[in-house]
Simulated scan of single mutants.
Amino acid sequence: MSESPPTAAVLIIGDEVLSGRTQDTNLTAIARFLAALGIDLMEARTVGDRKAQIVDGLNALRAAHDYVFTTGGIGPTHDDITADAVATAFGVALPEHPDALAILVRRYGDDFNAARRRMARIPEGGTLIANPVTDAPGFQIGNVFVLAGVPTIMTAMLEDVAPRLRTGAVVHARTIRVTGVGEGDVAEMLTAAARAEREVSFGSYPFGHGSVGEIGTNLVVRGRDAAKVETAVAGLLTQLAAVGVAAVRA
């Protein structure tokens, strides 16, 4: 029996996300990053800058999944409490990491103040995650990867994370664009296909509703076995053609 693919979860941290002032894009970036490595992203949560919420969310997610990625809350300001919360979740101290301190001293020179020094605090036992954009590192402890909230920085940090992960078989996805009908018109067909092929997943995503122009449904077929995905797509195309529904590979 083949080994099950690794699973992951994301914990998005920040009052600014919950308030609507900041639109989160990190979840999409992490999802695409993991998909390319064959790691299944199973869950995502968003919590505010409240230590108890972060601790509770992190402990639940790290117990349930192979990997957890946190974003946000590792900067120099008073509400950047992610490192404190992670240390509490793991039951360890939060000392200054000598390598992190050296990186920050080089980066800021005479502008290295007490606020920026907070970013050198790493939970005991943690290892640094390189930050090629602003140098201030993230860190890994156990199966948890603590990343910046700024999207450009977070994405750059993933380069140092990738080699640390156990990868799985990549999921192949194919889309069929069905025009002129809603997802309710193809629901029974998709249900039958899902029952017949358990190793392939089927999804439907309507488009154009409530707007002027073409309406229809995108059917998405996903699976780790590329041949089975292609067979499922061919089967759906044949069935759609048989009932006179216009459909093409997107």
Rank of each mutant, 00 (worst) to 15 (best):
V181N: 01
A87R: 04
R62W: 05
D185G: 01
T77Y: 09
I30E: 03
L190K: 08
T134K: 13
L41K: 07
G109W: 08
L147I: 08
N218E: 09
T175L: 02
N131V: 09
R174Y: 00
T88I: 15
G38E: 03
D160N: 13
V181Y: 01
R116P: 03
G73N: 11
A63R: 15
G48W: 09
T46K: 08
R117C: 01
V133G: 08
T71W: 08
P76Q: 08
L34I: 06
V68Y: 09
V146C: 14
Y205D: 14
A194G: 14
V248P: 00
A31M: 08
R249M: 05
D66A: 12
G138P: 09
A130L: 08
E214H: 06
L61K: 11
H78L: 11
I81H: 12
V133I: 13
R164G: 07
R166G: 11
V161S: 13
A120S: 07
L104R: 04
D160K: 04
A196P: 07
M42H: 09
V144L: 12
D66N: 15
L61V: 07
V133R: 13
R195G: 14
A83T: 09
D135N: 06
S4A: 15
D99Q: 14
D110N: 15
V220R: 12
G48H: 13
F202S: 03
L165C: 14
A193E: 15
A187K: 08
R118N: 06
A226H: 03
R177F: 00
L236Y: 02
H78M: 12
T71E: 05
G149K: 06
V181T: 07
G182W: 09
V105D: 01
G73S: 13
A247S: 09
T28R: 15
N143Y: 02
V47G: 10
L104Y: 00
V86E: 13
T77F: 05
V233Q: 02
L147M: 14
D84I: 13
R117I: 00
T155Y: 07
G168R: 04
P98L: 04
D24F: 03
E197M: 12
T88Q: 15
G38I: 02
A242L: 00
A36I: 06
I129E: 11
D80L: 14
L236D: 04
I103Q: 10
R21Q: 15
L237R: 07
T175E: 03
R45Y: 01
R21F: 06
G149F: 10
M42G: 07
P137G: 02
V133F: 01
A156H: 12
L94I: 10
G180V: 02
R106V: 00
A193C: 13
G14R: 05
E124I: 05
R177T: 00
G125P: 10
G235S: 13
R107S: 08
L94M: 14
G203E: 05
R174A: 04
A93P: 00
R116N: 01
G203M: 06
G91M: 11
A114K: 10
Y108G: 05
A187F: 04
E43I: 04
